[in-house]
Design a protein around this nucleic acid. Structure first.
Lengths: 97, 97
DNA sequence: TAAAAGTACTTTGAAATGCAAAGTAAATAA
DNA sequence: TTATTTACTTTGCATTTCAAAGTACTTTTA
């Protein structure tokens, strides 16, 4: 049990941290919203979202809006819980600083 | 200027975050102290410390304590400033969540 | 209405990074 | 004197990151 035990590896990257933060305040966010808010490339958003999906911290829904494909993301219960744990761990770490 | 603009890439890894936090509260920390506090392997500590050294956020001093080699690390002014910026950015990101 | 441009992603593969095992060199213990 | 431990560093394989290119459309323009 070290000081970084509860720092979640899945949130070790700023883009993943960004995706989670966005999804904590917005019930849904679509691909382009993430891309714009984070200023990342398409491939980047896709792969980091996939990483969060793989550990089941976010979920993906694909639908059509009119005739356009639309991919929207939202957190899972697990994801919210893990993110909160991560934030608490970060705060503890930081408050020592 | 996205929401993760001030999230520093150099601190994107929990071991590097841990090293910096430790060095923010302790004027110095040696190799073994970092290793124990972070529960990481030797190679791991060495390479993450080197990464922080490369961007000049920490500095390294090698000395002998008695007859044993000892490597101790400390933050640089730049490192402290950048870490504070990072923490502020994290707090802003988190408070939205 | 055919061609060109745009949209919304996904795939790809090279480059960078992460990791622990093995290596090194000296000190200490048996 | 040989074995073990300590304090790191090096190595090289594995994983991750990244943006460019690709795909499958839709929309605009000529």
């Amino acid at each position: 049990m070290s000081i970084i035990t509860n720092i979640n590896k899945a949130f070790d990257h700023r883009i993943r941290l960004g995706i989670m933060s966005i999804l904590m305040v917005n019930e849904f966010a679509d691909f382009n919203m993430l891309k714009e808010l984070l200023g990342a490339t398409d491939g980047n958003i896709a792969s980091h979202a996939k990483a969060l999906e793989k550990v089941e911290y976010i979920k993906v829904e694909k639908q059509f809006i009119g005739r356009k494909p639309n991919t929207r993301y939202s957190t899972t219960d697990l994801g919210r819980a893990e993110f909160k744990k991560h934030i608490n761990a970060l705060e503890k770490l930081i408050n020592k600083s």
